[in-house]
Design a protein around this nucleic acid. Structure first.
Lengths: 368, 368
DNA sequence: CTGTTAGCGCTTTCAC
DNA sequence: GTGAAAGCGCTAACAG
């Protein structure tokens, strides 16, 4: 039962094709704007008859509230944000992981009709912008921070203090109480090193990623701790930071293995690409799995990134993220409050499947 | 040269941690809000000295304008929208295509610091919402409409009339002047049919997708036109609409080929999955490429979706989309105005590579 | 070069 | 059950 029939609808569209405001609807219904607002926000204090009348006018004229105006007076925000602390074309985001993450966010938020708003945080005018600007500009009602945080990040603390729902897929030493869903990289490095120490190695090299980021700091700390447990001093030459390129990784492996006293290698470079490791070893005249032992890190459960490895350390980042996203959704819905703290432990696996994992592709790598 | 030093910064944060408004900045600078607004919007009429002072205060207190308030008085909008006319888990979106599209949008918009806002248009409370709500709610400054439009879509016309920049990756018979970047499906069907007619076939079957959508309508029209050119009447039994499942496609192929008079098949189902076609043929006791000829459709240039096919029709949808996105970016920047009209012609290719294209995965299909 | 006033479309507060 | 008035943070129009 529509007050304004379909045929008459056109004549109600305002001159110039402007959209209707709450006042237009109110005038049409012969009520005040406040009553329309009450209907809009599903609040009580409106008779069924009035409510129906207003709703049918809204439908007839295709009324939509101005999302910015709502956020101005009320505190309502528009979107669920997805930010990356470092530009997408700089930080290595895996295609499969991105697709997975998008699907998760769809299930948690998209399905409920939320907007999902990406801030890709580019180098804009030569330098990065504030990755949390979506919060400060009052666009985001909640935010997922995807990617490693710089070890001297100061933005996260401001987000944290704002009280808005957020979930970082990484932690920060400087803010242990932050809301996060991640993996304990320190523990990953510790058990990797422990494993090799227990097998008698004393000169253990580590190839590590994310030098300038928190996960890199954690890797170093775990490695150091394990060595200290056995009273072994850290030799700085045995730690090398890899950037996110195959050539660089091969180079770093070559340099580490050129030292003949090195009998073991932890590949925590996070590339999951065996070829560049083999290439580096070959150049150093070393045979992986034969004259040195390897522990390789992987994001895929029970995956054999490198069949020559003695063990694989599985980092359950997706599993942590799934829980974190769920909890963030609950926080947005007011069913809980923050902070979220999901920190999964890496698992060291000595028996791994035989097949090799296909080389992962970065987000903007050529497709097909 | 900052008016407020880093150490003094904290004391300028308002009590309760609320964000600064333009008035706070103005008071701090000893000017009016309008002057601050001018600086914010990079407008002239402010002395260099005043501008610098205001800018340094903004930096010091980390001022960010309220994006909603800007859109309220000014006409500024927040995000570049990405909408799907049908829910993402219903319409078959290819993973590779999605990744490609995201990369294109990143290059066109993300790089400039624009927000990219997805409206996934779910079945919300049992039915689809208006896929253009991001426009009506004044959230989108521009919008890409990704996916097939329903043949009786009425929303596109309202977007068109609003004058906002938009680009649909599909057309609508009812709105030939709409802004779009797409492929001429009618022409694709026409040349497919023409090819088979010229090789002497008279009983040509067509497996077609998107029954309820504009591309489905166009397929039928092209097929019909070609037959009519040769004075052949359309036999309704020779056209079957496939839904987006492998089983359904095999079924439909089986039914079409069960008719022994059928000597040719156009597979415009858009699945790019050869296995279900072969399965259907097998069940009908037919040998593809031997006792019937096939024309298969593909989105990948020079791809052999089906090595038994006599010809492949390549639909350059990505190529069209790239141009469309570029033009949309120019429209947003005010360097041009709408509507965008990029309509690429499909190419019929008789010589195709030998290898087979891997089975494409849908957006939310299980990964790895 | 700078300020004042009004008002964007909504929600809050308070009154009836 | 309903409305009047004020105000959220910003910018347009106009004034000086």
């Amino acid at each position: 039962m529509s007050v304004i029939g379909d045929k008459r609808r056109e004549q109600f569209l305002r001159a110039g094709g402007e959209a209707w405001t709450i006042y237009d609807v109110a005038k049409e219904a012969g009520v005040s704007a406040k009553t329309v607002s009450r209907v809009l926000n599903e609040k009580s204090g409106v008779s069924d008859e009035t409510r129906e009348r207003i709703l049918s006018i809204m439908r007839a004229v295709d009324y939509h509230p101005h999302i910015g105006a709502r956020g101005l007076r009320g505190k309502l925000r528009g979107c669920i944000g997805l930010t990356v602390p470092a530009p997408l074309d700089v930080v290595p985001v895996n295609q499969a992981f991105f697709l997975w993450l998008f699907a998760e966010l769809y299930r948690a938020f998209g399905i409920r009709g939320e907007y999902l708003c990406f801030d890709m945080n580019p180098y804009f005018g030569g330098r990065e912008t504030d990755y949390a600007r979506g919060f400060w500009e009052k666009l985001f009602k909640a935010c997922v921070i995807a990617g490693p945080l710089s070890h001297n990040d100061t933005i996260l603390e401001r987000i944290h203090r704002s009280g808005m729902p957020y979930m970082a897929m990484g932690r920060l030493d400087s803010l242990p109480e932050c809301s996060c869903a991640t993996v304990d990289y320190e523990e990953g490095a510790r058990i990797s090193t422990r494993f090799l120490l227990d097998r008698g190695h004393r000169r253990i090299a580590m190839l590590k990623a994310f030098a300038e980021f928190q996960p890199g700091v954690e890797r170093r700390r775990g490695y150091t701790k394990a060595l200290e447990e056995d009273g072994i001093a850290v030799d700085e030459h045995l730690i090398r930071s890899a950037t996110f390129g195959a050539r660089n990784i091969a180079d770093m492996v070559y340099r580490l293995l050129s030292d003949p006293t090195v009998t073991a290698l932890i590949d925590s470079s996070a590339t999951e690409d065996a070829t560049s490791l083999r290439e580096g070893a070959r150049r150093a005249g070393r045979v992986p799995g034969k004259d040195f032992e390897i522990v390789a890190w992987t994001y895929a459960d029970n995956a054999a990134v490198l069949h020559e490895a003695s063990a694989h350390v599985w980092l359950p980042v997706r599993e942590a993220a799934t829980e974190g996203i769920e909890q963030l959704a609950a926080w947005v819905e007011g069913e809980r409050s923050g902070p979220i703290q999901v920190i999964h432990r890496p698992i060291l696996n000595e028996t791994v499947a035989n097949g090799e994992v296909p080389k992962p592709k970065r987000l903007f790598e050529l497709l097909d």
